[in-house]
Amino acid sequence: MSVDMKAKAEASKAEGNTHFTSKRYDEAIECYSSAIKFDPSNHLYFSNRAACYTAKKEFSAAKADATECIKLSPSFLKGYYRLVQSNLELSLFDEATNAAREGLKLDPDNSELQKQMRLIKAKKAAKASADRNQSLGRPASQGDAKELLELQDAMQATRREMNEVQQYLSGCQREQKMAELTKSEMSSFPSDAAMYRSVGKMFMKATRDEIESYHDSQSATLQKKEKQYNDKLEYLKKRANSQMVNYKELRGGR
């Protein structure tokens, strides 16, 4: 392809970006379509046009462009995001899931694709719940998918908080064991043995009584912390159980 054709394609893309920013989606589509005519091998033009079609809620067209984008550049993550988005809006949940999984193979920690996976599950569960309600003659809730997604995010946050508290609790318990071991070892030393207490990276000479008093104080502080962490952990467990119950109820008892 000639340099001139590529330059024309880029100029059309730049003009399309300006229209897109101003939400003039029809004009932007025309520009991106021109860019594609000049250079049909550039995946970005299809990705940008897919974004326009999505904004116009023309999801079938968006899906076609996202699919072509991925075909041209299988490592382009935004292409997978756009394909998931269009499939999701078309209620093609299995296809949306497959697209999200392919994208996550490239970047397992991609937060946007991870969020899309949660949204797929929420919308899929909400649709199943709505179908069940319809079959039983019950009114369907329009907010089920949003509530499910919010609950999933809340459950994930609770799990993270539980893991953090568990780490603090484990650290506190290790410190207590070390303090008890130190005190036990001290009892085997001669009464006139020289003793030192660590202060940061330094060691200061101290009497046995001073060291024992220090460790008793530390032990009391650690026991208090351990109780606080255990109480916090119990609270989080109850919150997690409550969230799970709400989640199952929203999904129709499944």
Rank of each mutant, 00 (worst) to 15 (best):
K78G: 14
A126V: 04
R118N: 09
P108L: 00
E112N: 08
Y81L: 15
E112S: 07
K115V: 13
E95R: 02
L88P: 06
L106A: 03
D144C: 07
Y80W: 08
D94C: 03
D107L: 01
D94P: 02
E112H: 08
R118G: 03
E112V: 11
I120A: 05
Q134L: 14
D107V: 00
N110V: 14
G137D: 03
K115D: 14
K146W: 05
A96M: 07
R118P: 04
L88I: 09
P139F: 03
L90F: 11
L113W: 02
A126R: 00
S86T: 06
K124V: 02
L77G: 01
K78L: 14
L106E: 04
D107N: 12
Q114M: 07
A96V: 04
S135I: 04
D144T: 10
T97A: 02
L90R: 07
N87H: 14
I120C: 03
N110F: 12
S135R: 14
A130H: 07
A145P: 10
P139S: 06
A140E: 08
L88G: 13
Q134G: 05
E147T: 12
E112W: 06
L136T: 01
M117T: 12
A128N: 11
T97I: 06
Q114C: 01
L119N: 07
G79E: 10
R118V: 06
L106W: 02
A140Q: 04
L92N: 15
R101C: 09
S86K: 07
R132N: 06
S129M: 00
T97H: 04
A125I: 09
K124L: 11
